[in-house]
Nucleic acid binder design. Structure first.
Lengths: 154, 154
DNA sequence: GCGTTATCCTACCTGTGCGGTAGGAGTTTC
DNA sequence: GAAACTCCTACCGCACAGGTAGGATAACGC
């Protein structure tokens, strides 16, 4: 498994919030029951999402979580990065926020960098591209045959 | 980290063998010293590569490993899969060898599948594509003389 | 004000797999 | 026959995943 359940569950939480769409906050308990996930564990994920500025919280009775921004402006790269940390295919490859990819072993003892740098660079790029190109709005807007009530979400 | 050092080291072993190119087997000790990796650990990786039919071994003095096939016909998807096991972004997504992607939670209790299936399908596809489009020959071909298909996988 | 419903925060627990070591048995060459 | 290899199984420490537990804090309804 490439991503842990942190990413899997967290994405589902975000999708759930996006589907609801409204301004009324949704409690973690409600999400947990609807998605069949342990509520105590979701608290940890929600904390990460909140610290990353992806969701807003309201405490107390009738409290809960809402999306902090428009679903169309939230990329899955942000979500996954908030939950899993930096996205790197292998240890020797790190990604700058500007998109540049560097091999941390570059020029070690006069050696050329990892012979496999080309591969990991490609993999890194394709993963980040897939995550960046997919927004939260894409997930809640299914392709066809979905004519229920959610067509009003942005 | 998305892939463990098994993939990282294993790819370097394969690249090392490809660079040598000849029919003379190369011992793990030689590879380990050249790449700065623990030889005892490489034995485990070599065993996986051999069972996957990617390398051939010769035992005894002057023994070692050689590539089992032409470097241009060995895709990194094969190598990574031999070392890491099946490539799936999250638990709920599995890949058939035919390339089809299925959500294992499809139709659970009448629910629709993971709302996030679209995302993981995209990620899965882009990773597998990047790994499949890169052959061992691509890694050992020096950057300047890279002449073959640079079709730029998106 | 008080209980209820929530988020928030810290600590803890258990299993699994990574990364690596150890030691030996079997094979081939010189 | 010794040296140089692969091959195989077992083990080991550690980090992290995937939770659980319990309380502190904050807002609401009455």
């Amino acid at each position: 498994m490439i991503f842990s359940t942190k990413a899997e569950y967290g994405v589902r939480v975000m999708a759930h919030l996006a589907k609801a769409g409204g301004d009324d906050p949704i409690s973690l308990a409600a999400i947990a029951e609807a998605e069949g996930l342990p509520v105590a564990y979701l608290e940890h994920l929600a904390a990460r999402l909140r610290k990353a500025g992806l969701v807003q919280s309201r405490r107390g009775a009738r409290g809960g979580y809402t999306l902090a921004r428009d679903p169309g402006s939230i990329t899955m790269a942000e979500v996954v990065r908030a939950l899993e940390g930096d996205i790197a295919p292998v240890e020797c490859i790190t990604a700058g926020a500007d998109g540049s990819v560097v091999c941390t072993r570059e020029g070690e003892a006069g050696h050329e960098p990892c012979a496999s740098k080309l591969l990991w660079t490609r993999v890194q790029g394709s993963i980040v591209r897939a995550l960046t190109d997919t927004t939260l709005a894409d997930l809640v807007r299914p392709a066809t045959t979905r004519k229920r009530k959610e067509t009003l979400t942005v």
